[in-house]
């Protein structure tokens, strides 16, 4: 498959980052950076990564199913991740998640029909002192109230149009 010049450079740098004969180490970073660009871990991406690190596609499949951030299905353009783990739960993170479900009309690991949003109830993301916290793609949002979430989602919708 053809990669963007940025991803090509990233892959090449990763392959040089590990000791000789240990290129397999680049697998998980390559899959994640590849997914960031392509939208999901596609069959083509698996073949590409497998070829570059010298393992079979089956070996890549076996590994990727372990990691919760790697998705075989495309997520939305804006992937909304709401933490409901203990510190966020004590600040009603569970209710914030339910609010997000209603607002977007989707559930856990689902995407809206227009592909703009997807939702995931996630485990601790390391924002416990600033709970409840969410991540939109890789961006953290702290002390999120349902009203703030509404404003954030409405703003992103406008962006999309």
């Amino acid at each position: 498959m053809t990669l963007s010049p940025q991803l090509e450079a990233k892959f090449n740098k990763l392959l040089e980052s590990y000791p000789p004969g240990r290129q397999r180490s680049a697998m998980i970073p390559m899959l994640l950076y590849g997914q960031d660009e392509i939208g999901s871990v596609t069959d083509d991406l698996i073949e590409e990564v497998a070829g570059r690190i010298g393992v079979t596609a089956l070996q890549v499949n076996e590994v990727l199913s372990y990691y919760s951030m790697l998705h075989r299905k495309p997520m939305g353009k804006y992937h909304i991740q709401v933490c409901t783990n203990i510190s966020c739960l004590l600040h009603d993170g569970d209710k914030l998640y339910e609010h997000a479900c209603k607002k977007l009309g989707i559930g856990h690991k689902e995407a809206t029909a227009d592909g703009q949003f997807s939702l995931e109830e996630v485990e601790c993301m390391g924002a416990c002192s600033w709970a409840p916290a969410i991540q939109v793609n890789y961006d953290f949002h702290h002390f999120v109230t349902p009203e703030q979430l509404d404003r954030l989602l409405d703003g992103l919708k406008k962006n999309a149009v």
Binding site: I28, P29, V55, Y66, Y67, S68
Partner: peptide, 26 residues
């Protein structure tokens, strides 16, 4: 070098982290 994980609490355990660093399940 920096190395990214991809979502797995277990990889914070030292030996699982080393497996993950080698491109395997943690």
């Amino acid at each position: 070098y920096t190395h990214t994980g991809a979502g797995a609490y277990e990889c914070g355990e030292e030996s699982a982290l080393l497996e993950s660093l080698e491109g395997k399940r943690g």
